[in-house]
Design a binder for these strands. Structure first.
Lengths: 122, 122
DNA sequence: TCGCTGTCTCGACGTCCGTCGAAGCAGAGA
DNA sequence: TCTCTGCTTCGACGGACGTCGAGACAGCGA
């Protein structure tokens, strides 16, 4: 993960707490979390993240990711880098292949922020 | 809301169910929900949505939204249109002013998709 | 009816993003 | 050491996005 991404993640962890529907999010929190939402704002990255997060054993090889899309290797690599820089996934080279695993911390933050009251307060 | 947006919302409601960490999201679901995440991918829109969703009485006037940012009226209006087209908020003109209120359905969808297992499976 | 205020739409401009081909780097095997 | 495979980085291109000023439209009060 880049130093920039680490900073963003840290900021997010320390400033985000209350659901979006409970109180207005402060500008700093919005600044910190918007990049994460933006990262999820591409269908390819959304599928990539879910393939990684739902993989058996918690990790998955790039070689299993790339063939699932009609895109070139560099493009998939670019999307993975965006997810990495946002702190949503982590990568590790093991021998020939690179393995990706999800980082649920940020994911949980986003889920909490989006959490809406059950159903009686529509 | 535009006809296109209605279609997107409908598609999302019918296809999205399982959390992202549980199984890979199908391409159609990713296509349907990515625009919503993209809409949240801007700090201004994130703040706007939270101001609307957390407003007392469930709604808020544009005239209370605009002064909260260092942006011109047209720019705020543009961001509100994005949120409207995504199905995240709804607008209603009442007399001179336009009032916005949140539409929690889509918000809930996104939260469910992002829901991660508690903490024992990091 | 005529202004006046509040909001949205339109057109334009600069910047960012998704995609690709080509090149570079790391590991494995001969 | 050499070569081959897998993945990433680099550079470039076309399209989308955020922002603004100017203009248009809706409703209110005189």
């Amino acid at each position: 993960m880049s130093k920039q991404a680490a900073l963003r993640l840290d900021l997010a962890v320390t400033t985000c707490c209350a659901p979006l529907t409970q109180r207005p999010v402060p500008p700093e929190t919005a600044q910190a979390l918007a990049p994460a939402f933006k990262a999820l704002g591409d269908p390819v990255r959304l599928q990539l993240l879910s393939m990684i997060a739902s993989a058996e054993g918690g990790e998955i090889c790039v070689c299993d990711l790339t063939p699932a899309f009609d895109l070139t290797g560099p493009t998939i690599s670019h999307h993975l880098k965006v997810l990495r820089d946002t702190g949503l996934v982590d990568a590790e080279r093991r021998g020939t292949w690179v393995w990706y695993r999800a980082r649920p911390a940020m994911l949980r933050q986003l889920a909490v922020l989006l959490a809406a009251p059950p159903a009686d307060a529509p």
